[in-house]
Design a protein around this nucleic acid. Structure first.
Lengths: 360, 360
DNA sequence: CTGAAAGCGCTAACAA
DNA sequence: TTGTTAGCGCTTTCAG
């Protein structure tokens, strides 16, 4: 590939001049300017960004670290981040940590070697201490969507998880539910990983005089399967709840499946609400009510923050909170309600639609 | 951040020596070796890969170009590619073309500027001519999963789409279906984008004396909604088909929803089979039968090919074909079959499980 | 407005 | 075994 020297020679100028016309930083006579540009065109010259990065000490590259791109929560986020980054002249290096702190640490080192201009770090597989070390090395770090409140002073863009839990609780209460259960990520006994969602939910119930009893708490690990298993335990309780809040959508979907397999109808025998608003939620039946994470907003705020940091600004505030949004679909309804469509359905009991399940 | 010079100075050697101990290319006395390593540790020195790339003319970076990471087909692929790449010392630059040839072209230019070592290009938003240009600039290109047979001589790893269509047809035929329809991506009249899947399907039917009639072809654009609309047209036909082959899973899911909304039961009133084997397919009810694209294999072959090309080898063959696999789940069955579970279901018509729909 | 020259941080002959 | 030297391709003072 042609270099700046090739262009310079053909245009009978020095490399400096070529650099000037390309960057527009220095004024160049219209005549040489045109000549250089013509050669650039002719040779199909593309400046070597590796060389440029070396001297400018800027790579215009960002690292995007997340536990697993195949986790349905991330693709939409990644698309949003990538789009904004591109618009700002940045490219994205994708790092799947696989939730492994050792791999996460390795990635951090590698990104340091590559001199990325900044890091966007989603929770999972990344230790705060390693991230702080990266920051000390001069790479601005922005924590995105972290819930576990480990002590840190790193810039962050987080969802108001507590508020999300509260939103779910208020919704269920408004529908008239009083016997509630939650399926939360975390081992029994230990602190839930989805702690704040759980706390917001719990506190909201307590505020209306529904103190929490341990009976209604079941544990999963964010997978659909774990939600299914939690629901099986939950449905075996003597006082079966009429509504369940699962702290993510995948577990909520597991709860719905289990309910179905146990002959229960969602939402009427059991209302289910999730958290995240993943794409799948609109394509299961009934469609899933959920607490939505505004992914585009999260991406925009995070990019804005990291870009500011890269520019050496002192952005204010350093910790941004994004508000969740309640999305009501078909998996939640008042307890025991029978929709109007039921009458029709009873006439044709041999035909159960695959899609909507109006016959509950 | 510390440079190789800092390390050299502190260790009282020259940068070259430091380079030698770090690369292990030249033999170094155990004494200086230990000394250098100690300083490296002390200063937490990380070689600047930008500088290294400049001299080695290798960036150990690959560009992964695809239409849209949020398209459920890609996340699993990306994860697989990224994992392999990392294991080989490469990092991935993610490029979402948004199916826009202009953006695709821009990306290609940008990747050329960044001197990526190779390109993995999925179909959508990329012109063969632009890709060829990139290859001529010295960046090995591997086409991944391209179906449209534009003329090109670029290395490629493709699924045997024709065989996939044949697989779907054989499955449906084996179940006893004779009135079949297909929902294919492509505008009515024009050539279907999913042409080979369609042809394989058609040819297999023809082989058993079921010549194709145009009545059974409906068009979509790969979205779930388009599948839904196509199904509505399809279900209005005088001779309603008993089985549908949708050329991707999303459209197949749309067909299932439409069937449900029209009071039909899948699989008994209408068998549905898709193509791709996206994650969602196992989480709709009934679970979706499909022609699976072996994503890990695709990723592995593509990586192997591009790595060979980068090493300057002349890999043989340059065009790799990957075989699809039939995955039978619950959305396909013999026409009109009533499962055993139906009797149970009729006793409790007011309780329709959300999950499995055994009551069909 | 343009050229000369230094240097970003590293590697790789070639010498010593 | 280690040092010297010359770049990789570009940007950026500083002169002219």
């Amino acid at each position: 590939m042609a270099t700046i020297n090739d262009v310079a020679r053909r245009a009978a100028v020095t490399p400096a001049t070529v650099s000037y016309v390309l960057s527009g930083k220095n004024s160049v006579s219209e005549k040489t300017r045109a000549r250089v540009l013509a050669i650039v065109e002719e040779l199909d010259y593309r400046p070597n960004l590796v060389a440029r990065s070396l001297v400018r000490r800027r790579t215009f590259t960002l690292a995007l670290l997340l536990p697993d791109i195949a986790n349905p929560f991330y693709p939409e986020i990644v698309r949003a981040v990538e789009g904004i980054a591109r618009g700002c002249g940045y490219h994205l290096l994708l790092c799947n940590t696989g939730s492994d702190p050792l791999l996460g640490r390795t990635y951090l080192r590698e990104m340091a070697g590559r001199r990325v201009d900044g890091l966007l770090a989603f929770e999972g597989g990344l230790r705060v201490s390693d991230l702080s070390a990266a920051e000390r090395r001069g790479m601005p770090v922005v924590l995105c969507n972290w819930e576990e409140q480990q002590e840190h002073d790193l810039p962050s863009v987080d969802l108001d998880f507590w508020q999300g839990g509260a939103l779910a609780a208020r919704h269920l209460l408004a529908l008239g539910h009083r016997r509630l259960a939650v399926v939360v990520h975390g081992a029994s006994g230990g602190p839930p990983a989805h702690c704040r969602r759980f706390e917001g939910f719990q506190a909201t119930l307590a505020a209306v005089g529904l103190p929490w009893s341990d009976h209604g708490v079941f544990y999963g690990d964010s997978t659909l399967q774990s939600g299914y298993r939690a629901a099986e335990a939950l449905l075996g309780c003597p006082e079966r709840p009429t509504a369940v809040f699962a702290t993510n959508d995948l577990m909520a979907m597991g709860v719905m499946e289990a309910a179905g397999d146990h002959g229960l109808c969602v939402p009427n025998d059991l209302a289910v609400i999730g958290f995240d608003d993943i794409f799948l939620g609109t394509h299961v039946r009934p469609t899933l009510s959920t607490v939505a994470v505004p992914k585009d907003e999260l991406a925009a705020r995070a990019m804005e923050l990291v870009l500011r940091l890269i520019e050496g600004e002192q952005p204010e505030p350093l910790h941004i909170s994004v508000q969740p949004r309640l999305v009501v679909r078909r998996s939640t309804a008042a307890p025991g309600m029978v929709p109007a469509a039921a009458a029709d359905e009873r006439r044709t009991p041999d035909r159960t639609p695959v899609g909507l399940t109006p016959g509950c």
